[in-house]
Design a protein around this nucleic acid. Structure first.
Lengths: 338, 338
DNA sequence: ATACAAAATGTAAACGCTTACATTGACGAA
DNA sequence: TTCGTCAATGTAAGCGTTTACATTTTGTAT
């Protein structure tokens, strides 16, 4: 078995308490003693047992991150930023990818709670707005540690939200679209995610605003958004019953597929067909023409989230909700600027 | 503070041992007792303390995963597959994103080792082939638990490798390129990653094979591969001194940038300019024209890796090295098939 | 040299579990 | 009824730390 603090104390000729103090950077240890212990540790390659530490300590300076799907470009980026920030603040992070099933989400939430994390950050769709019961597990968790929500909103005790005002962004861009030459605009979205619904709301308000029925222009795609062929087939299907010459997508990947669709139909982008994505992800500059997209300020949001968290952990009063505004990044698939 | 096993035993009127047995699914507990305890646990929302468990238990059925950068599409996908498989095998996973700095890699490696993981899986460039000393930390880790390498090769005790024969794939595709109409082919690559070097080797052999000096045709790009503009600028720079009409890239993102470059120069793809990427990632079908790429069998590789690991943990003799062959997935940026 | 305060170090309890071993209880055979 | 057996349950030690408190050492002023 590996060495314990006893082994080290014995070899260094001191007590375990002194070793522990050195390990934890206590100041009240004579420097000669410290050196001696450090040398032994170095020589024998001792590493403290995290579980034993966990038992003694109250805080392990560890934050649990739950992510629905780390293979999603956007979420992976979010997790990455958050981890960097946590590390910069001297916190470790524990990441679990839960998938979309509710029981798995609950399972991992409890799992990670049992590891004495100081807080939990939820990245992706965890907060299911429809049923109070489904969300109860989050409220339960919030009784133990502060819960941070990225891109979701909830008014619970000890739950802090950082999000982008998708509603407004989508509303604004829809209005812009409706006023442009290509005015037959549809909205395609995929998941039942909270942000997807907020975007739908903004789109709907804009469409309803000009006296049309938004429901006729919003289409939900159930499937893998990265399967381009499936999405283009989906659009082809829509085209059978609906006329449209521009697409607002809830995700960049969907928008990319819309571009493929346009190419298939021989439609010129942006002259005859306009497309707007969401997230301003790496995909945008990968497509030809490059994709206009709404930047939802992921990086600033993650900074804010971690900042808020650090404040909360230090006992400061922090905002329960931090709201950012998205901004349109125009590239080659729209022609607003002309 | 949260409840302990003592609280539960008290409320249920049994001893802590019995509660522990129920918690761990022991069979020798009367079912009426079991029910009673389970009910109390349910009612009071007890969750065992993972650290205390960790102290008692020898194996926590937990695997540590180290990933260089989870925001990289390819690596994120790899991690995702691995986590799914581990979960299916009843193992938990602990993921740490280390970044590229060597000290951070070492730091996290030790950190994760201290959490009593049963094994460590390294995803990305951890094995630095050049200096023995730099790799020593991996050998040290392998003394404690089996170390699994994805896409890297090392002949150390207790280290198991699963990789794709990038060398051959790149060699084959280069030969194919050299024989086609567009024969002025260059290779662009970014990192000092192990697989990047293997690919370079394959490319070089093919080029040297026709009596040219490979070094004149391979170009290393140092920078963010997702910054399309930077990469196109890099290509423009190359074009000043070198004539080329086809590009083999070590990563899809670089290939995508090469497509942008071609578009800028008004070159027709694939007629006047051919491009091949690597990894067959989601980017391939996102670009227009869609990108020909080498599929390096990520999913089968991850399955194999986890299989091997499970075998090793069960004490079976397993292959030290599992080698897959990449395959060319032709899309619209090449014209081999015509 | 002596006394005392402060700094350094040591001792031992606590953290919440698992599990070997001890004890109790139930049931069937004699 | 009485014993033996085996299943169910309980007791207590141990896992490797941290840390409050106790003790020793050091340094300083007298």
């Amino acid at each position: 078995m590996s060495l314990t603090i006893y082994d080290i104390s014995e070899k260094a000729g001191v007590s375990i308490a002194t070793v522990s103090r050195v390990l934890n950077g206590a100041t009240n240890v004579r420097s000669s003693t410290k050196e001696k212990i450090l040398k032994v540790i170095e020589e024998y390659g001792y590493a403290p047992n995290a579980f034993a530490r966990g038992m003694g300590l109250h805080s392990l300076k560890t934050i649990g991150i739950l992510c629905v799907d780390s293979s999603d470009i956007y979420l992976a980026k979010a997790v990455y930023y958050i981890e960097q920030d946590l590390q910069a603040n001297g916190y470790e992070s524990l990441l679990c990818c839960t998938g979309h099933q509710v029981d798995m989400k609950k399972h991992y939430l409890n799992l990670i709670l049992s590891k004495k994390v100081d807080s939990i950050i939820l990245v992706g769709s965890y907060f299911i707005s429809n049923t109070e019961e489904d969300n109860d597990y989050i409220r339960q968790a919030a009784k133990k540690v502060p819960v941070m929500l990225l891109n979701a909103s909830a008014d619970y005790d000890n739950v802090y939200c950082t999000l982008c005002d998708d509603y407004s962004s989508t509303y604004d861009v829809t209005v812009k679209m409706l006023n442009s030459d290509t005015s037959d605009v549809i909205y395609i979205y995929n998941s039942e995610s909270y942000s997807g619904l907020r975007k739908l709301g903004g789109f709907s308000e804009a469409v309803n605003g000009i006296g049309k029925n938004a429901a006729d222009y919003a289409f939900k795609y159930n499937g893998d958004i990265y399967k381009t062929e499936d999405v283009t087939a989906f659009l082809t299907e829509i085209a059978k019953t609906h006329r449209f010459n521009s697409v607002i997508a809830s995700e960049d990947a969907l928008a990319i597929a819309a571009l493929k669709y346009a190419a298939q139909k021989g439609l010129k982008v942006p002259e005859d067909f306009e497309v707007i994505g969401y997230n301003n992800s790496v995909l945008c500059s990968c497509s030809t023409p490059s994709l206009t997209s709404i930047d939802n300020k992921l990086e600033p949001m993650t900074h804010q989230l971690v900042n808020t968290l650090m404040g909360v952990l230090n006992g400061q009063e922090m905002p329960k909700k931090s709201l950012f505004n998205g901004s349109l990044v125009e590239r080659e698939t729209t022609s607003f600027e002309k």
